[in-house]
Nucleic acid binder design. Structure first.
Lengths: 108, 108
DNA sequence: AATACATATAACTAATTGGTTATATGTGAA
DNA sequence: TTCACATATAACCAATTAGTTATATGTATT
């Protein structure tokens, strides 16, 4: 189960994903686009690979990276549903609170 | 700018939020619900507070925690839009790839 | 005033993260 | 085959995280 929060929890990684959405990129292109070293970029790529958000392949001496849309879709659904549920019910209980002034009281 | 990825990036914190969606809770109730120590729970609560996802107040000797639906809504919009954009364009470029076999080639 | 108990905080540990520099490896071109 | 260069990996550092135990603080109750 890929951890989307881990994958998206860093702005460099989000930047990488935003670049990849415009088409596959070589590692060299990604390194050039950010102000950090090649090994640092590779570590971010490794995290995205671990979480299965991207794939890598070879093209001669170039490493090619691409998004995995299916996994992204699953991640999207997961986050969407989790936060969505939190929000819906919270609006209901906010409404209850305002209307009835009640809150949970199961102390001891 | 609250970091929603940090806030939601831990399953205990997501569990806490899920409890709070059913109504405000005391710290004691939250501690009882998880299998970790009171200080550990308090640390999670502090992170959620730092990211403004929840609020705390006093009720006698009890600490009361509640969701901040407005901040959650902003978080939701942010994540929703970011991943949504990634997905849309990726579907387009996937389509291009399948149809034309092309991928980015701006080496050197 | 003394006790009980909810909460806060301090000090510690182990693992992870985000970065670095230095160096090794592998492929393509001269 | 040698050189250039894209990538991989190792060793290191500082900060953060997720937990622990021990202890202090503050409020309520007796």
């Amino acid at each position: 189960m890929p951890d989307v929060y881990r994958a998206l929890g860093d702005s460099t990684r989000r930047g990488i994903l935003s670049m990849l959405k415009h088409g596959n990129k070589t590692q060299k292109e990604l390194v050039k686009a950010f102000d950090i070293s090649q090994p640092a970029i590779k570590k971010h790529l490794n995290i995205l690979l671990e979480e299965k958000i991207i794939s890598e392949s070879w093209d001669g001496k170039y490493r090619i990276y691409s998004l995995n849309p299916e996994v992204l879709q699953i991640a999207y659904n997961e986050v969407h549903q989790y936060i969505g549920e939190l929000l819906d019910n919270q609006l209901v209980s906010l409404k209850n609170y305002v209307e009835k002034g009640e809150f949970q009281d199961e102390l001891d």
